[in-house]
């Protein structure tokens, strides 16, 4: 149950995004038919729906916050926890299931030490199981952020995660170099 879960603190970026959302709401009419498009817009900017965003949306549409919450929790798309920076979505459509998609899911869970629906404490990775993403001929499929990875064998899981780690370390190095470079300029 979502309401029992602990509320995540908003980061500074998220708080700023929330202000922007308040402005963006003006582009939408106040008819109830706009509810789902609005929630989609909010989630695109915040990547989840924190309670404050739900209140904002409710007041824009003149609805009770609980009604907005009731609608949002009906749909798979909406999240109530912040996802990881790398969102791992393991497809468990029929074709992926037949080709061992659940084994792929387990591998991610094991490697990251979290269960599906959870986010690693450093907010780097989150794992979700998703219904068919429609790339059945490439089964089993994993979607990480917006990239589709086809034919993901269990042994490929480690490679994928390692790739992200290397990418992250390289970025950190570059940021550091960049920062060092700047400090030298001054």
């Amino acid at each position: 149950m979502h309401e029992q879960s602990k509320e995540f603190e908003l980061t500074a970026e998220e708080a700023a995004a929330l202000d922007e959302i308040a402005g963006a709401l003006g582009r939408f009419g106040q008819e109830r038919g706009n509810l789902i498009p609005i929630l989609q817009m909010v989630q695109e900017r915040l990547s989840y729906l924190p309670p404050r965003a739900i209140e904002l949306v409710a007041s824009h549409l003149g609805m009770a916050p609980c009604e907005v919450y009731g609608v949002a929790t009906f749909y798979n798309q909406f999240r109530f926890h912040p996802p990881g920076r790398y969102r791992i979505k393991v497809c468990l459509g029929t074709a992926c299931h037949v080709k061992g998609g659940d084994i792929i899911l387990e591998n991610f869970e094991r490697k990251l030490g979290i269960r599906d629906g959870e986010t690693t404490p450093d907010r780097e990775f989150s794992i979700e199981r998703v219904a068919c993403v429609g790339c059945c001929a490439l089964a089993p499929v994993t979607v990480i952020n917006e990239t589709v990875h086809g034919h993901t064998a269990p042994s490929k899981v480690e490679g994928l995660l390692l790739g992200f780690q290397i990418e992250r370390e390289r970025k950190e190095r570059e940021d550091k170099k960049h920062a060092d470079g700047e400090s030298q300029d001054h």
Binding site: M1, H2, E3, P51, I54, A64, P65, C66, E67, Y69
Partner: peptide, 21 residues
């Protein structure tokens, strides 16, 4: 006009909730 309770979640997990009160 502003209902205080609603259904939330879906399927077997469907529940009645007083979210936000």
């Amino acid at each position: 006009a502003m209902p205080l309770l609603t259904f939330a979640d879906r399927g077997f997990s469907t529940t009645v909730t007083f979210y936000g009160q």
